[in-house]
Design a protein around this nucleic acid. Structure first.
Lengths: 137, 137
DNA sequence: CTGTGTGCAAACACTTTGCAGGTGT
DNA sequence: ACACCTGCAAAGTGTTTGCACACAG
């Protein structure tokens, strides 16, 4: 989907800055940090706009945040259609390659499994796996 | 184990500030953020000392860091003996209760499982599960 | 036209660094 | 005695807020 349609379908206005940011996400193809994006943006791009843009993208479910144990949080576009009626909060797993440091979002059928003690109920699981990706092994 | 022995056994010097911080961790009994600790410390406690203390505790393996998707990173004492010869980096799962917001560190036999695509090799997995704990359900 | 988005400046919050003096072993 | 730890000040970095103007719908 192109950037304009992505924006419209999430109830966001189409502006040059937003399209730019979406294109950068798509070019990367994997999860990136705030800084990664800023580096690809024209050097006079306003930092505040980036903060606000990422926040509204997140609010509207256009992207999601991946916490990274050793490093800053990463953002990724939600291509896998999060429009289930019952909320956008299903389990998710991400994979970080220790060689190339890329973070990818694993497909939904690779949902993480965790056993929890009795008396507890499980809602969702967010997992970050590390290892070597197919390119680097 | 008392705070002094914990410090000594990790090659750290025993000081009033460090014992204080360890006691706070033990009082909480679950994973807490930098701010949680600071709030329990005397109001004139130096923030810089806390930063440095947490860092050296982490370096020495006395505590570990839990990334939190919605919130700041949390720290937890490593009671389950991380002194395997082959590094402290095994998989770990943590559980955050959506009611009371406590974060606990799940026992080692609850290691998270993730299936990864072929061509990839898996090193370790860090998982954060959310749901309801036994106290809140 | 109206509400949203942008850019700038400034405020704010968080973290790190340098250094002098204090403390544990 | 020596290395490590602490506290203060200051610098550095990252993030948020307020406001005036621009722009998409």
């Amino acid at each position: 989907m192109n950037s304009n349609d992505l924006l419209k379908s999430h109830g966001l206005r189409v502006t040059a800055q937003r399209s730019l940011i979406i294109n950068i996400f798509q070019d990367f193809g994997y999860a990136v940090s705030n800084k990664d994006i800023l580096d690809k943006l024209p050097k006079d791009f306003d930092r505040v706009t980036l903060y606000r843009t990422l926040k509204s993208f997140e609010d509207k479910g256009l992207l999601h945040v991946i916490p990274d144990p050793e490093g800053e949080a990463k953002y990724a576009l939600c291509n896998h259609d999060h429009t289930h009626a019952h909320g956008h909060d299903h389990s998710h797993a991400h994979f970080k390659c220790t060689q190339c440091h890329k973070v990818i979002c694993l497909p939904d059928h690779h949902e993480p499994q965790v056993k929890i003690p009795s008396g507890y109920t499980l809602d969702k699981v967010i997992a970050l796996a590390t290892g070597t990706c197919d390119q680097c092994s």
